[in-house]
């Protein structure tokens, strides 16, 4: 049973955030628990419940992520899959994995800085440009192309870039 649980964590590592496809849902920290609700020796007999929390109240990717989780587990041989939405405790960028933050940077998005609980005002943060590494950057808008991002510009390379906001 524990083996199955560990295997499911690995399978879900392959499910990507549809909006930032370099991040897996495990990197994002939105998979809160995996439970084998009815154990069985073969996969088709097992019942699996995956608890997922949304990043934002209005995250448009939620339905797609849920469908992707189901599909990934179906493909792996599981038949009885349920997905539970949990809202409490609310998702925070603190749950994003270190490797996730690294992947974000490589993808051209500056990773969230600091802890969400003692959040510094976004205007006062020093955000490093993911393009050239300069710290001479400025905020253009706290609201960006999706709910999770803010828009910055680099004064060194002059390129605009996204910053994944603390949450």
């Amino acid at each position: 049973m524990q083996k199955q649980e560990a295997e499911i964590w690995q399978i879900l590592e392959m499910v990507k955030d549809p909006e930032i496809p370099v991040l897996s849902i495990i990197d994002l920290g939105i998979v809160r628990s995996i439970k084998i609700t009815k154990p069985s020796n073969n996969l088709t007999g097992s019942e699996v419940c995956v608890a997922v929390t949304p990043t934002y109240s209005a995250c448009p990717a939620v339905d797609m992520i849920n469908a992707d989780i189901k599909n990934a587990l179906l493909e792996a041989g599981y038949k009885n899959i349920s997905i539970e939405q949990v809202l409490f405790p609310a998702w925070t960028t603190d749950w994003m994995s270190a490797s996730g933050k690294e992947k974000l940077k490589k993808y051209g998005i500056a990773a969230p800085i600091g802890k969400s609980c003692n959040q510094t005002a976004i205007e006062e943060l020093t955000v490093i440009c993911p393009q050239c590494g300069s710290d001479k950057t400025k905020i253009i808008s706290a609201f960006g192309s999706t709910a999770c991002k803010a828009l910055f510009q680099c004064n060194n390379c002059l390129e605009p870039f996204d910053y994944f906001k603390c949450h």
């Binding site: 934002y56 809202l87 706290a142």
Partner: peptide
């Protein structure tokens, strides 16, 4: 409380 806590993060922005 859970919905409120989630919304609060968004409200701060």
């Amino acid at each position: 409380a859970g919905i409120a806590a989630k919304s609060l993060k968004e409200l701060s922005y």
